[in-house]
């Protein structure tokens, strides 16, 4: 019975990994990576490795996506010129 559970989890992980690689836009990839992280955690749990599953849960659902999203945020910000500044309190304006 557990074999089936493992099979389903492996299939899910393979699907999620493939999707994560084929999702080329980093912010979207971060979402899929967190899905992959959850899938891996479930797989590790059914492979009787709760310790590793806990680690994967911690790293995969919170840490790695947060790091990637912070980087994406920093990186996709274009150089701001005064003229394309919306008045919502943005980057360049509050420089002293």
């Amino acid at each position: 019975m557990n074999q089936w559970l493992i099979g389903a989890a492996v299939a899910f992980v393979v699907l999620a990994a493939t999707t994560a690689v084929l999702t080329r836009e980093p912010a979207r990839q971060a979402v899929v990576l967190s899905v992959l992280g959850l899938g891996l955690a479930v797989l590790f749990a059914v492979l009787q490795a709760p310790d590793v599953a806990l680690s994967q849960l911690a790293v995969g659902t919170a840490l790695t996506p947060l790091l990637i999203l912070l980087t994406v945020r920093k990186v996709t910000r274009r150089p701001t010129r005064p003229d394309d500044h919306p008045a919502t309190g943005d980057d360049g304006q509050d420089q002293k």
Partner: peptide, 27 residues
């Protein structure tokens, strides 16, 4: 890859293959 952040994400995926193999070996 056309984007380094995507490449780093792929590196993380590559690493998950090592967890998969190690735990499968120990099952």
């Amino acid at each position: 890859s056309r984007n380094l952040i995507h490449a780093i994400g792929c590196l993380a995926v590559a690493q998950s293959s090592t967890y998969l193999l190690l735990l499968a070996v120990g099952y």
